[in-house]
Computed example of a mutant assay.
Amino acid sequence: MKLFRILGLSLVVAVTGCATNSSTQDEQWLNPPMAVPLQANVQYEVQVARLTQLLQRSDLENDVRAKMHFERGSYYNSLGLRDLAQLDFNQSLQLNPAQPVVFNQVGQYFTQIGDFDSAYEAFDSSLELDPSNSYALRNRSIALYYGDRIPLAIEGMTRYYQENPSDPYRALWLYIISREAGPLDAAIALEKRYQARNNDWGWILVALMLDKVSEEQAFKAILASSRDNTVLAERLTEVYFYLAKRHQVDGNYPAAVSLYKLAIAQNVYDYAEHKYAFLELTKIFEIVRAQQVEQAKQEAKQAETNKAEAQ
């Protein structure tokens, strides 16, 4: 893909360790940096089997059974089996509805499948049970964003950001959501937050969003600091997601689609960036489909006009 020509130098040096002829470098098709996609955790699979066996017992109290369903659902989630996880979360809540953490998980599932009203209800239940649940506050704000309820999303994400202004991921999501209401103001605010940054690795993602570092520099930083394959997969999931988001807001949909798919391909199921990449792809496909329908209407209208004029 032409998109990845800009990554040429960093890929050749950092991944393959060999150089290419500079006169032909721009004409080559180069692969993007990838970790070995994360595989199913054997320990998680063992825990699923153990909990499944224990849940067959008839002498379990409801609270204990509810906890086991939640634990098994969490393992299913980490293994990428979100529908099985949802079944367990629902069973857990039926046995014990006073579980804010479980409602938060249920809300994320509904967000992923685009059932936003159910997601809001789940997150509201989580926050009613535990008003200090920051994860539910964040995830509800993201759900509101994807559900096109931008003012409420900004309000919630602002609260979430203010709890820890030094967190680059909070700054990123506040920017992503706020730019829907005012791109320039959102960029200025993110710039100020970036200038006050600490040494957290995530600020390189902010720098990438602000175009303060090149894509080549970002990938070099990742490859240089990620000796462990799991860490590499996690960081590539993040950088591909936010880089895709930057291309998306610029209207470069082909690049965004490719990058979202790369974020998904790392198999980091627990990361929000992996989960929401599917939603972003859906949004892009809907936009492109709408544009194609509109273009077809315009072409049909023009054809009728040309026919009438010819007569």
Results as ranks from 00 to 15, higher is better:
72 R>T: 10
94 Q>H: 12
5 R>I: 11
41 N>R: 14
152 L>Y: 12
172 L>G: 03
27 E>N: 13
309 E>P: 01
303 A>C: 01
173 W>A: 00
285 F>P: 01
203 W>Y: 15
298 Q>C: 01
90 N>P: 01
273 E>I: 04
193 R>E: 04
160 Y>L: 02
202 G>S: 11
249 V>M: 07
55 L>P: 07
130 D>P: 05
170 R>I: 05
138 R>D: 00
266 Q>I: 08
274 H>R: 10
244 A>G: 15
60 L>R: 07
21 N>S: 12
126 S>E: 00
172 L>F: 04
168 P>I: 05
168 P>D: 02
129 L>A: 03
15 V>L: 07
159 R>I: 12
157 M>G: 03
260 Y>S: 07
27 E>V: 13
171 A>D: 01
252 N>D: 14
147 G>V: 08
135 Y>C: 01
289 R>D: 10
74 S>N: 10
196 A>T: 09
11 L>I: 15
183 P>Q: 06
228 D>G: 04
287 I>Y: 07
95 L>G: 11
296 A>R: 15
265 A>H: 09
108 Q>V: 14
37 P>H: 09
126 S>Y: 00
34 M>I: 05
157 M>R: 05
259 L>P: 01
286 E>P: 03
104 N>F: 02
107 G>T: 08
218 A>I: 03
249 V>E: 03
244 A>Y: 01
241 F>N: 01
114 G>W: 00
232 L>S: 06
150 I>G: 04
106 V>A: 04
42 V>L: 14
199 N>F: 07
271 Y>S: 13
220 K>R: 14
139 N>H: 13
108 Q>P: 00
258 S>A: 14
119 A>L: 05
10 S>G: 07
301 K>S: 13
20 T>V: 15
139 N>C: 06
289 R>G: 08
307 K>M: 06
195 Q>H: 10
294 E>W: 01
54 L>G: 01
93 L>I: 12
118 S>H: 11
201 W>T: 13
297 K>T: 05
296 A>H: 11
131 P>C: 08
206 V>S: 02
11 L>S: 08
137 L>G: 03
277 A>T: 07
193 R>Q: 14
214 S>P: 05
73 G>H: 00
299 E>G: 01
60 L>K: 12
56 Q>S: 07
119 A>T: 10
184 L>N: 12
198 N>Y: 07
54 L>N: 08
100 P>Q: 07
52 T>Y: 04
305 T>Q: 12
